[in-house]
Computed example of a mutant assay.
Amino acid sequence: MNGEKLRMIIQCSIFAAITGIFAQIEIPLPLVPISGQTLAVGLTATILGSRYGAFAMVGYAALGAVGVPVFAGFSGGAQVLVGPTGGYIFGFIAAAFLTGWILEKTKFNLTMAMIANTVGMIVILILGTIQLKYVAELSWAQAMAAGVYPFIVVGLIKAFLASWIGITVRNRLVQAKLIDRSPKAAA
Protein backbone atom coordinates (compact mmCIF):
# COMPACT_ATOMS: atom_id res chain seq x y z
CA MET A 1 0.00 0.00 0.00
CA ASN A 2 1.43 3.36 -0.96
CA GLY A 3 1.62 6.35 1.37
CA GLU A 4 -1.16 8.28 -0.38
CA LYS A 5 -3.68 5.44 -0.01
CA LEU A 6 -2.73 4.95 3.63
CA ARG A 7 -3.17 8.68 4.26
CA MET A 8 -6.65 8.61 2.71
CA ILE A 9 -7.65 5.53 4.72
CA ILE A 10 -6.58 7.35 7.88
CA GLN A 11 -8.47 10.49 6.84
CA CYS A 12 -11.61 8.48 6.05
CA SER A 13 -11.33 6.79 9.45
CA ILE A 14 -10.93 10.15 11.19
CA PHE A 15 -14.04 11.52 9.48
CA ALA A 16 -16.04 8.38 10.31
CA ALA A 17 -15.03 8.93 13.95
CA ILE A 18 -15.93 12.63 13.77
CA THR A 19 -19.37 11.65 12.46
CA GLY A 20 -19.80 9.28 15.41
CA ILE A 21 -18.86 12.07 17.82
CA PHE A 22 -21.14 14.62 16.15
CA ALA A 23 -23.99 12.06 16.28
CA GLN A 24 -24.02 12.44 20.05
CA ILE A 25 -24.87 16.14 19.77
CA GLU A 26 -28.62 15.84 19.52
CA ILE A 27 -31.98 17.40 20.21
CA PRO A 28 -34.48 14.60 20.81
CA LEU A 29 -37.71 14.66 18.81
CA PRO A 30 -40.48 12.01 18.84
CA LEU A 31 -39.27 9.88 15.91
CA VAL A 32 -36.08 11.38 14.45
CA PRO A 33 -33.66 13.45 16.57
CA ILE A 34 -31.87 16.51 15.27
CA SER A 35 -28.19 15.59 15.47
CA GLY A 36 -24.77 16.76 14.38
CA GLN A 37 -24.39 13.82 11.99
CA THR A 38 -25.47 15.74 8.90
CA LEU A 39 -23.02 18.52 9.71
CA ALA A 40 -20.27 15.89 9.85
CA VAL A 41 -21.42 14.42 6.53
CA GLY A 42 -21.20 17.83 4.88
CA LEU A 43 -17.78 18.52 6.37
CA THR A 44 -16.53 15.13 5.24
CA ALA A 45 -17.72 15.55 1.65
CA THR A 46 -16.55 19.15 1.40
CA ILE A 47 -13.08 18.28 2.64
CA LEU A 48 -12.50 14.80 1.17
CA GLY A 49 -14.60 14.89 -2.02
CA SER A 50 -16.97 12.29 -3.43
CA ARG A 51 -15.07 9.03 -3.31
CA TYR A 52 -13.38 9.38 0.05
CA GLY A 53 -16.35 11.18 1.57
CA ALA A 54 -18.56 8.22 0.64
CA PHE A 55 -15.92 5.75 1.91
CA ALA A 56 -15.86 7.57 5.25
CA MET A 57 -19.65 7.30 5.54
CA VAL A 58 -19.59 3.60 4.58
CA GLY A 59 -17.04 3.14 7.37
CA TYR A 60 -19.28 5.03 9.79
CA ALA A 61 -22.32 2.94 8.85
CA ALA A 62 -20.29 -0.29 9.09
CA LEU A 63 -19.00 0.62 12.56
CA GLY A 64 -22.55 1.23 13.71
CA ALA A 65 -23.88 -1.89 11.99
CA VAL A 66 -21.52 -4.15 13.93
CA GLY A 67 -22.65 -2.62 17.21
CA VAL A 68 -20.19 0.20 17.91
CA PRO A 69 -22.39 2.92 19.51
CA VAL A 70 -21.67 5.63 16.92
CA PHE A 71 -25.23 6.44 15.90
CA ALA A 72 -27.33 9.13 17.58
CA GLY A 73 -27.97 8.50 21.27
CA PHE A 74 -24.93 6.18 21.52
CA SER A 75 -26.85 3.51 19.62
CA GLY A 76 -25.45 0.88 17.31
CA GLY A 77 -26.37 -2.39 15.65
CA ALA A 78 -27.92 -3.50 12.39
CA GLN A 79 -31.39 -2.92 13.86
CA VAL A 80 -30.75 0.84 13.63
CA LEU A 81 -30.03 0.57 9.90
CA VAL A 82 -33.26 -1.34 9.25
CA GLY A 83 -35.26 0.73 11.73
CA PRO A 84 -37.23 3.93 11.17
CA THR A 85 -34.14 6.20 11.05
CA GLY A 86 -31.84 3.91 9.04
CA GLY A 87 -32.66 5.61 5.76
CA TYR A 88 -30.98 8.77 7.00
CA ILE A 89 -27.76 6.83 7.61
CA PHE A 90 -27.88 5.32 4.12
CA GLY A 91 -28.57 8.84 2.93
CA PHE A 92 -25.27 9.96 4.48
CA ILE A 93 -23.38 7.76 2.01
CA ALA A 94 -25.31 9.05 -1.01
CA ALA A 95 -25.14 12.65 0.20
CA ALA A 96 -21.39 12.52 0.84
CA PHE A 97 -20.80 11.16 -2.65
CA LEU A 98 -23.13 13.63 -4.37
CA THR A 99 -21.91 16.66 -2.39
CA GLY A 100 -18.29 15.84 -3.16
CA TRP A 101 -19.09 15.08 -6.79
CA ILE A 102 -20.79 18.46 -7.31
CA LEU A 103 -17.74 20.21 -5.83
CA GLU A 104 -15.34 18.17 -7.97
CA LYS A 105 -17.31 19.00 -11.12
CA THR A 106 -17.55 22.71 -10.29
CA LYS A 107 -15.26 24.42 -7.80
CA PHE A 108 -14.34 24.06 -4.14
CA ASN A 109 -15.56 27.47 -2.98
CA LEU A 110 -18.16 28.67 -0.47
CA THR A 111 -20.96 29.25 -2.99
CA MET A 112 -20.64 25.86 -4.66
CA ALA A 113 -20.16 24.15 -1.29
CA MET A 114 -23.41 25.69 -0.03
CA ILE A 115 -25.25 24.46 -3.11
CA ALA A 116 -23.66 21.00 -2.88
CA ASN A 117 -24.35 20.68 0.86
CA THR A 118 -27.97 21.78 0.40
CA VAL A 119 -28.41 19.10 -2.28
CA GLY A 120 -26.80 16.59 0.11
CA MET A 121 -29.20 17.61 2.88
CA ILE A 122 -32.15 17.07 0.53
CA VAL A 123 -30.87 13.60 -0.43
CA ILE A 124 -30.57 12.64 3.26
CA LEU A 125 -34.09 13.88 3.99
CA ILE A 126 -35.58 12.06 0.99
CA LEU A 127 -33.94 8.70 1.71
CA GLY A 128 -34.55 9.01 5.44
CA THR A 129 -38.21 9.93 5.04
CA ILE A 130 -38.90 7.09 2.61
CA GLN A 131 -37.60 4.49 5.09
CA LEU A 132 -39.30 6.26 8.02
CA LYS A 133 -42.65 6.15 6.22
CA TYR A 134 -42.51 2.44 5.45
CA VAL A 135 -40.84 1.10 8.60
CA ALA A 136 -42.92 3.20 11.00
CA GLU A 137 -46.02 2.65 8.84
CA LEU A 138 -46.78 6.37 8.55
CA SER A 139 -48.73 8.27 5.94
CA TRP A 140 -46.70 10.55 3.69
CA ALA A 141 -48.02 13.57 5.62
CA GLN A 142 -46.94 12.02 8.94
CA ALA A 143 -43.54 11.04 7.56
CA MET A 144 -42.96 14.56 6.22
CA ALA A 145 -44.06 16.09 9.55
CA ALA A 146 -41.71 13.83 11.51
CA GLY A 147 -38.82 13.44 9.07
CA VAL A 148 -38.55 16.59 6.95
CA TYR A 149 -40.21 19.74 8.26
CA PRO A 150 -38.35 19.93 11.60
CA PHE A 151 -35.02 19.66 9.76
CA ILE A 152 -35.27 22.26 7.00
CA VAL A 153 -34.08 25.38 8.84
CA VAL A 154 -31.49 23.59 10.98
CA GLY A 155 -30.38 21.67 7.87
CA LEU A 156 -29.71 24.89 5.99
CA ILE A 157 -27.72 26.21 8.95
CA LYS A 158 -25.69 23.00 9.04
CA ALA A 159 -25.19 23.16 5.25
CA PHE A 160 -23.76 26.67 5.63
CA LEU A 161 -21.50 25.65 8.54
CA ALA A 162 -20.29 22.55 6.67
CA SER A 163 -19.56 24.70 3.63
CA TRP A 164 -17.77 27.49 5.46
CA ILE A 165 -15.75 25.30 7.84
CA GLY A 166 -15.22 22.61 5.20
CA ILE A 167 -13.80 24.95 2.55
CA THR A 168 -11.58 26.66 5.14
CA VAL A 169 -10.20 23.36 6.45
CA ARG A 170 -9.87 21.90 2.95
CA ASN A 171 -7.85 24.90 1.74
CA ARG A 172 -5.51 24.56 4.72
CA LEU A 173 -5.08 20.83 4.18
CA VAL A 174 -4.30 21.43 0.51
CA GLN A 175 -1.72 24.10 1.47
CA ALA A 176 -0.16 21.64 3.93
CA LYS A 177 -0.13 18.99 1.15
CA LEU A 178 -2.21 16.63 3.31
CA ILE A 179 -4.85 16.28 0.60
CA ASP A 180 -4.70 16.76 -3.14
CA ARG A 181 -6.14 19.92 -4.67
CA SER A 182 -8.17 17.66 -6.97
CA PRO A 183 -9.63 14.57 -5.27
CA LYS A 184 -9.98 12.98 -8.72
CA ALA A 185 -6.19 12.80 -8.91
CA ALA A 186 -6.12 10.68 -5.74
CA ALA A 187 -8.71 8.20 -7.06
Rank of each mutant, 00 (worst) to 15 (best):
Val80Gln: 03
Ile124Asp: 00
Ala136Asp: 01
Ala54His: 08
Glu137Pro: 07
Met8Leu: 15
Ile10Thr: 15
Met57Thr: 09
Ile115Glu: 08
Cys12Asp: 10
Val148Trp: 10
Val32Lys: 01
Ala116Cys: 12
Gly67Gln: 03
Ala17Arg: 09
Leu39Glu: 04
Ile14Thr: 03
Arg51Cys: 01
Tyr52Glu: 12
Ala56Leu: 08
Ile179Thr: 00
Ile89Val: 15
Leu29Gly: 01
Leu31Asn: 02
Gly166Met: 07
Ile167Phe: 08
Leu81Phe: 12
Ile18Asn: 05
Ile130Lys: 10
Gly73Ala: 08
Ala16Lys: 10
Leu63Cys: 11
Tyr52Cys: 11
Ala176Met: 09
Gly36Tyr: 01
Arg7His: 11
Phe90Cys: 12
Gln131Phe: 05
Phe92Gln: 08
Ala17Pro: 10
Arg181Lys: 15
Ile126Phe: 13
Leu81Arg: 11
Ile21Arg: 08
Ala72Lys: 00
Pro28Lys: 14
Asp180Glu: 11
Ala94Thr: 14
Ala143Tyr: 06
Ser13Cys: 08
Ala62Leu: 15
Val80Trp: 02
Phe160Ala: 14
Ser35Leu: 03
Val154Pro: 14
Leu103Gln: 07
Thr44Trp: 10
Thr38Cys: 09
Ala143Ser: 13
Phe92Cys: 10
Ala62Glu: 05
Lys105His: 13
Ile25Val: 13
Ala65Arg: 06
Glu104Phe: 12
Val70Ser: 09
Gly83Thr: 06
Ile27Gln: 09
Ile126Gly: 09
Phe108Gly: 01
Pro30Asp: 00
Ile152Tyr: 06
Lys158Met: 12
Ala176Glu: 08
Gln11Ser: 10
Thr99Arg: 06
Ile9Val: 14
Gly87Ile: 00
Ile25Thr: 03
Gly147Cys: 12
Ser75Trp: 02
Ile102Val: 14
Leu29Ile: 01
Glu137Asn: 15
Trp164Ser: 09
Gly42Cys: 05
Phe55Pro: 03
Leu125Val: 12
Ala78Phe: 15
Ala95Lys: 03
Leu31Ile: 01
Leu63Lys: 08
Lys184Phe: 09
Gln37His: 05
Cys12Asn: 13
Leu43Trp: 08
Gly67Val: 03
Tyr60Thr: 02
